[in-house]
Write a protein that binds this DNA or RNA. Structure first.
Length: 519
RNA sequence: GGCGGCGUAGCUCAGUCGGUUAGAGCGGCGGCUUCAUAAGCCGUAGGUCGUUGGUUCAAGUCCAACCGUCGCUACCA
């Protein structure tokens, strides 16, 4: 059992509002951090914003303001969003943070001193529309495929990081650590990128002359240039935990987990390991790659205007429900579909009918047949032992699934405990037993078993649905049930004390009635 | 063009490095029940696992080709 855990989201580019993709990545990271905290590990979660680059400058010019103002506006938007939604990050890093600038510059200098950065003139075809040089793949019939115009020949001197020198090392390392990049097929994609035929050059341009772009971190060895984005963006993962000297760095870097979307696999799977190798830093423990959310079979896209805002989802359904959907519906690594009817179906089936209703019926009967106090259980019968065993089995399954990055399986497993408890109630039928002199004495045991099952459920759910979990504890008469206690002790059967005052409360997740298909 | 994903019951999808009668949830249908959010429980509904051809004692599960579909190809997770 490791004692520390470090999880990162990508830093989000500040040219768009938070949408379902950002939210998914962030929620997965948050869930992992919470789960590891539940195990008593020392955890650190990093998220933040990527703020340099020409696109931000463009936006600033369009708006007649400064890039710093644009970046700050969006950075605050992201931060505020995560705060409102209860994302429990430890640091929100901005690539414009002073300590980050220093770390980037020190790393640049270090790589430069090692002779791995080369200054040379590059001559190529430049598209004025794109404001960048085009590669063969950017052109169709000699025209820029985005702007459909002929690029002009231009030359420019820049600094290049010779990452190709690390390719064979990287390929060997990936082969030797097959689970470094997961799920597996993304590992294969990276290996393909490293192969000769991929067309991926071995050189990474890491600078821009200030006359073309001055919004960035100045190169420590040439003040006519700024660092170009990927190089400075990726380093945030090091800055976030105090590279190079902080004790946090030693604690967290070796156990780091990156969560990324598949679109940024190349920078994280190729550029980043090469950069780390160049400065003699170890690789992160895992690079975890997830797929995309499709909306009505279309890609998430600003231009289509079909962004799914986490704040709108929060207002409409409650963020916990949305969060549940994200974690329950997507197989990590694969693409998934999102639509409101799917979301509603999932909320009703799992959260309202099963979980919420079980809470209602259990606490209602506890109020009715046990004076609202958690009853004292008698000797367990066979049915009680089944629930106890199910709880233990689910606890270990959840652990296995979370660690292997299968949130959907973990939630499925938890739902299984809820189902089992609903079935158990049907078997014991305390609403009848309470009125039957021959069975009345089993009612306390029955209700205790249900309450205890709910407590264990809430513990297991706490990383996934923190607020819901907290509410269940509260209704069971528990205060901060997670304080000072950790897995696996937390789910040990019998942890719920008799005599605690329970409270029924309103439906946890009201069923959402759909009057008609809004389509 | 190159690379890659996907194509399994009406719907959304699982199928753990090939092996007993192919699974889950939702929906539908029938029944039970009434503590509960018209929730719950029981039963049921029979899909040539895209097509063709291979490898194998054995393939949804490996290989090839093809069809359909979606995506990536240096900055939208």
């Amino acid at each position: 059992m490791s004692e520390a855990f470090y999880v990162t989201t990508p830093i989000y580019y500040v040219n768009a509002e938070p949408h379902i993709g950002h939210t998914y990545t962030t929620v997965v990271a948050d869930m992992l951090a919470r789960y590891h905290r539940l195990k008593g590990e020392t955890c650190f979660m990093l998220t933040g914003t990527d703020e340099h680059g020409d696109k931000i400058l463009e936006v600033a010019q369009e708006r007649g303001t400064t890039p710093d103002a644009v970046a700050t506006e969006y950075a605050q938007l992201f931060k505020k969003t995560w705060d409102q939604l209860g994302i429990d990050y430890d640091r929100f890093i901005r690539t414009t943070d002073p300590d980050h600038r220093l770390v980037v510059q020190s790393i640049l200098q270090k790589v430069y001193d090692a002779g791995e950065i080369e200054f040379k003139e590059y001559e190529g075809l430049y598209c004025v529309g794109c404001e960048r040089f085009l590669t063969d793949r950017d052109m169709v019939d000699g025209l820029c495929r985005d702007h459909e115009r002929a690029p002009e020949s231009r030359s420019e001197s820049n600094y290049f990081f010779n990452m190709g020198a690390h390719f064979s090392w990287l390929a060997e390392t990936i082969e030797a650590h097959p689970d470094f990049i997961r799920p597996e097929h993304y590992r294969n994609e990276v290996l393909a990128m490293l192969s000769e035929e991929s067309g991926l050059g071995g050189e990474l341009c890491i600078s821009r002359p200030k006359e073309r772009l001055d919004w960035g971190i100045e190169l420590p060895f040439d003040n006519r240039y700024v660092c170009y984005v990927w190089f400075d963006a990726l380093i945030n993962y090091l800055t976030g935990v105090g590279y190079p000297d902080g004790s946090e760095f030693e604690t967290f870097w070796p156990v780091s987990e990156h969560i990324i979307g598949k679109d940024i696999l190349k920078p994280h799977g190729v550029f980043w390991p090469c950069m780390l190798h160049a400065i003699g830093a170890p690789l992160p423990r895992h690079l975890n790659v997830h797929g995309f959310w499709n909306l009505d079979n279309r890609k998430v896209s600003k231009s289509l205007g079909n962004l799914v805002s986490p704040q709108v989802m929060d207002e409409r359904y409650g963020f916990e429900a949305f969060r549940y959907f994200l974690l329950r519906e997507m197989v990590f690594g694969q693409d998934s579909s999102f639509s409101e009817p799917l979301l509603i179906a999932r909320i009703n089936a799992d959260l309202a009918n099963n979980l919420g209703n079980l809470v209602s019926r259990t606490l209602n009967m506890t109020g009715r047949f046990a004076d609202g106090l958690v009853p004292r259980a008698g000797a367990p019968g066979e049915a009680e032992l089944v629930i106890e065993e199910t709880a233990a089995r689910v606890t270990s399954e959840v652990d296995e699934h979370v660690l292997s990055l299968r949130p959907q399986r973990a939630l499925e497993s938890i739902m299984g405990l809820i189902d089992a408890t609903n079935r158990y109630l049907e078997l014991r039928e305390p609403w009848k037993a309470a009125k039957d002199p021959e069975r009345a004495d089993q009612v306390p045991t029955t209700l205790y078993t249900c309450c205890e099952s709910l407590r264990v459920t809430a513990v297991l759910l706490s990383a996934f649905l923190p607020q819901t979990s907290h509410e269940i504890f509260s209704r069971l008469g528990l205060g901060n049930a997670l304080e000072g206690a950790f897995l696996p002790e937390l789910t040990r059967w019998g942890g719920l004390e008799a005599g605690l005052p329970t409270r029924k409360g309103p439906p946890l997740f009201p069923r959402i009635e759909v009057t008609e298909d809004s389509k």
